[in-house]
């Protein structure tokens, strides 16, 4: 805990090579297998779309092939089975969300501005891609233990991102317990989960003001949290 978690925290997103920040690692981004990787990409996206729309249980390899128009052989060239494909698709989806979040937060000066931009971008993604979001947030629970391990790691990165407030809070003499950012992530995750599960699609952006309140509150107190909530409403 207490590590500086500005945009660096969501390291997974950097690996996706989407960040515009100059980064030596971008040069090593695996762009070599262009042909197979685009087919692979199509399958992974199709998997997320199918799982989000139809549920993990009801999605089969055949469903994904039908949605994507990819041949069966191409699927098995890339993946061992449905579970393997979903796990890789989960990584891709989470990387994409993290990239969107990191990109939005990059270049913002204060933590609260980074937070507002980052959470705003996250919520916009949920509005724009409800099926992919459902596949990642809701259906992950149906996909077995390995998927839940990945979920825990992704939530930890969000927790670290939120805990980026710690340094600024310390300057004001505030030092919330380590559980504070975990509680924020868990609560935010629960609100998102319940709307996605209820198929309340398109309703996410309106959550930004209260998310700001909940995330700012443990670090800067109720007054600042209220100010941030109002600022995000505007």
């Amino acid at each position: 805990m207490g590590k500086r978690a500005d945009t660096e925290a969501l390291a997974g997103a950097k690996r996706a090579g989407v960040s515009k920040a100059p980064d030596s690692r971008v040069a090593e981004a695996p762009e070599l297998k262009l042909v197979t990787s685009s087919k692979r990409q199509t399958i992974l996206e199709g998997m997320l779309e199918a799982v989000g729309a139809e549920g993990y249980e009801h999605t089969s390899v055949r469903t994904v092939l039908a949605r994507t128009g990819v041949y069966r052989q191409a699927f098995y060239d890339n993946f061992a089975d449905k579970d393997d494909c979903y796990l890789q698709a989960y990584d891709l989806g989470v990387e994409r969300i993290e990239a969107v979040l990191v990109e939005a937060a990059a270049g913002k000066d204060s933590w609260t501005e980074q937070l507002r931009a980052g959470l705003g971008a996250l919520l916009d993604f949920l509005d724009a891609e409800p099926d992919i979001s459902r596949a990642l947030v809701v259906e992950v629970h149906t996909a077995g233990g390995a998927a839940l391990v990945k979920r825990a790691a992704a939530l930890q990165r969000l927790t670290d991102f939120i805990d980026g407030a710690r340094a600024a809070a310390a300057e004001r003499g505030e030092s919330p317990p380590p559980i504070a950012p975990e509680g924020v992530t868990a609560g935010i995750q629960a609100l998102i989960h319940s709307r996605l599960a209820a198929k309340a699609d398109g309703s996410f952006h309106e959550l930004l003001p209260e998310f700001m309140y909940f995330a700012v509150l443990p670090y800067f107190g109720a007054e600042v949290a209220s100010t941030e909530m109002r600022a995000a409403t505007a």
Partner: peptide, 28 residues
């Protein structure tokens, strides 16, 4: 709460969701 009506509408769901996730993680 000193905030009273200013609290976000989802405050109870946020608090319960947070606690539930923590319990979920422990049990899992």
């Amino acid at each position: 709460s000193a905030q009273g009506d200013e609290l976000p509408a989802d405050t109870a769901r946020f608090a319960i969701g947070g606690a539930t996730s923590m319990i979920f993680d422990e049990i899992r």
